[in-house]
Design a protein around this nucleic acid. Structure first.
Lengths: 193, 193
DNA sequence: CGCCGAGTTGAACTGAATCAAGAAACGTGG
DNA sequence: CCACGTTTCTTGATTCAGTTCAACTCGGCG
């Protein structure tokens, strides 16, 4: 995959950028190649970076009273960051780690601010990305409020059919707000009536 | 409250606009004065409007299998819309109604798009509003995942101490994803150990 | 081959829902 | 301004979905 193909992908998925803006975006981008299990952010750190996933998968999670609780998964052509830290400049409550070997683009808040100031179309790109994120969260909240454990699982499968191949069940369970045991029972067809 | 004061409030809470942009924003704005209980959007409607609350309070809710489930509250100096319909151009799953007599500014999607195209600073305003909304949802999801019924209630009280004066307990309960009875017991100090 | 983390299965427990009934507050018209 | 009906909230008893604890299985990897 060439750099051009990557930028095109962002253009068509989110919002188009002028060639000039694309150039400058690339000049601010850092390419990262990291292995499964490596971490991008730890709790308590100030993280002013956002990551675009070219290839691979990543996970944001909390450690709440020693319990690992997944908060977000991201895959190819998606963005991930420690959103609290990135947007509010506070220490991150999240850890960020890679679920698979990955190829990432790293962008700093300073770069994003600079590009947003200079290019209206970059400001729009950010607006579109944030809007999509907000709509995903909206869906997630609705899923939590309306559905029982099994329905929540079916829901995430509908949105991301490959999730069970790419994310450990433990992480899916904590993301759904159910215990690993319950998820295991849901998945076992013998437990059907 | 004059129109200038209202626009100033938006400028300082969200993101500043040039005078020219402010003027044009006002020319696209419709002022609405509505009574408690009136509805802005019903389920199934295509709603391409966003409302800014000058005075009063509003609520977005679902009717899921006949049950009324609150999804969002908005008060002075906040925005509310049927976000699914507004951003994805689908029929609204939400109802929107007023919890108090209210004074609102109504903006159409067409106006917002036009202003966003024309003015970089308006695009930024929208980006900032959406980002704030996203961060509230993030907090809400964390609150749902981490806390029990009582803690969720304490949480919303911390964020909005006046909510019990302005929103019926039924609506607060469904927003928190707990039953009205549980909320009532939580609020009764006799039930403390 | 044996260990270790991930997932499964079973049994007991529990926080909150549901069902049911009554009390308080609210507002509307006489 | 009061009476009455409606809505909102409270209280009690029972039930249940899902948790927790514990033991076990399986598959991959050093």
């Amino acid at each position: 995959m060439t750099i051009e193909e990557i930028v095109n992908k962002i253009n068509e998925t989110y919002s188009p950028l002028t060639l000039e803006c694309q150039q400058e975006l690339l000049s601010h981008s850092t390419l990262l190649s990291l292995k499964k299990g490596e971490s991008l952010v730890r709790e308590g750190q100030y993280s002013d970076k956002t990551y675009y996933i070219i290839k691979g998968a990543a996970r944001a999670y909390y450690l709440k009273d020693g319990k690992d609780i997944s908060d977000w998964f991201a895959f190819e052509n998606e963005f991930i960051s420690s959103i609290i830290s990135f947007f509010t400049d506070k220490p991150s409550p999240h850890y960020l780690e890679l679920l698979e070997d990955a190829l990432l683009i790293e962008l700093s808040r300073a770069s994003i601010e600079k590009l947003s100031d200079k290019y209206h179309d970059f400001e729009r790109l950010i607006r579109v990305i944030v809007t999509k994120t907000m709509l995903s969260q909206q869906e997630r909240i609705a899923s939590i409020q309306f559905y029982n454990a099994e329905q929540k699982y079916q829901n995430i499968l509908a949105i991301r059919p490959d999730i069970t191949q790419r994310v450990p069940l433990t992480d899916i369970a904590s993301y759904l707000g159910i215990s690993l045991e319950t998820l295991s029972r849901i998945r076992n067809p013998k437990n059907r009536i």
